[in-house]
């Protein structure tokens, strides 16, 4: 039982991280109908920027405080993500308005390659580390309930907390600010929103910026856990089933989907894996999403699309 719970919690933590990436997908899809395959490349790009800037800042400024270096690096990386967002809107999206979903998806694949190339070109292609002072040591909890207690990674716990905070902030942003309202209007109906004077292009830039910032947060957390390296770009692949499961247009869906996939992966790996040779996490998530898709194409929380001829 303790082992099961441990696996479950491990899965929930991993799921939270998927959710972080998935939220980036959902934001962009909602506002611009683009399924952004480059989200993973953005995570990589942001994490690379963060890692390298925090390395370079002490040299540039002569201040050796890690806190200072990390803060400056965070701001600089954030600015880079803004620039990336702006460029993507300017150079790509603007020219592909009203294209089919598949075309847009392929375009973001192109963006992904571009970002991966540029990111590694600027920042290098080794393994770097991000150290924002996350505690690494595991702790035992619930020792009075189970014998030996349950092993939890403090780092995971903090990561989950940050993710939850980010989601809360995003929700506030969407519900309470004028920009948030405009975003929701655009998500509902591009043309209607445009006709009441909402500047579509600016909204897209903002959304991509916000997605860039979530990529940065995700990049920092993943990066400090696993190190910053090329494989970080593949988290997009891991998060894809999450959004499908949760529904493409729903932020809560991304969270719940992330948790389900996280838990499903871990449980299947631990309890099913040994019988089939292990390593089934990746495709298991896809199969889960695929089976789900057959019964409920719009996902858990997505809006149902009614086709009228």
């Amino acid at each position: 039982m303790a082992f099961f719970l441990e696996t479950l919690i491990g899965g929930l933590m991993a799921g939270m991280l998927y959710s972080l990436v998935a939220i980036g997908f959902v934001l962009i899809f909602k506002a611009s109908g683009v399924f952004n395959f480059a989200q993973g490349a953005m995570v990589l790009f942001a994490a690379l920027a963060m890692a390298r800037f925090s390395e370079w800042v002490p040299g540039w400024t002569g201040v050796s405080s890690p806190l200072f270096a990390n803060s400056v690096a965070f701001v600089l990386a954030g600015i880079m993500m803004f620039v990336v967002a702006w460029l993507i809107e300017r150079l790509v999206l603007r020219h592909l308005v009203n294209q089919e979903g598949a075309t847009l998806l392929m375009a973001t694949l192109g963006i992904a390659y571009l970002l991966e190339g540029i990111g590694q070109g600027i920042f290098g292609n080794d393994i770097y580390k991000i150290d924002v002072g996350m505690p690494k040591e595991p702790v035992f909890v619930l020792q009075n309930v189970f014998e030996g207690g349950i092993l939890i990674n403090k780092e995971d716990f903090i990561a989950a907390l940050i993710a939850a905070l980010l989601v809360g902030a995003l929700t506030l942003f969407f519900q309470k600010t004028a920009t948030g309202r405009a975003l929701r209007a655009v998500a509902d109906d591009h043309q209607a929103a445009q006709s009441i004077g909402i500047p579509l292009n600016r909204i897209w830039v903002i959304v991509w910026c916000v997605a860039g910032v979530t990529a940065l947060v995700a990049g920092i957390i993943w990066g400090s856990k696993l190190g910053v390296q090329f494989s970080l770009a593949t988290v997009a692949m891991r998060a894809l089933p999450v959004v499908i499961l949760g529904g493409l247009t729903s932020v809560p869906g991304a969270i719940v989907g992330g948790l389900i996939i996280g838990v499903g992966e871990k449980l299947s790996e631990v309890f099913l894996g040994p019988y089939v040779g292990g390593g089934i996490e990746i495709w298991f998530a896809y199969m889960l999403a695929l089976v789900f898709l057959m019964f409920r194409p719009q996902g858990l929380f997505g809006e149902k699309i009614i086709d009228r001829v």
Binding site: L91, A107, L109, G110, I111, Y113, L114, G117, G121
Partner: peptide
């Protein structure tokens, strides 16, 4: 970069 740019 070149592949990405060309795709777009």
């Amino acid at each position: 970069m070149i592949f990405g740019a060309l795709i777009v």
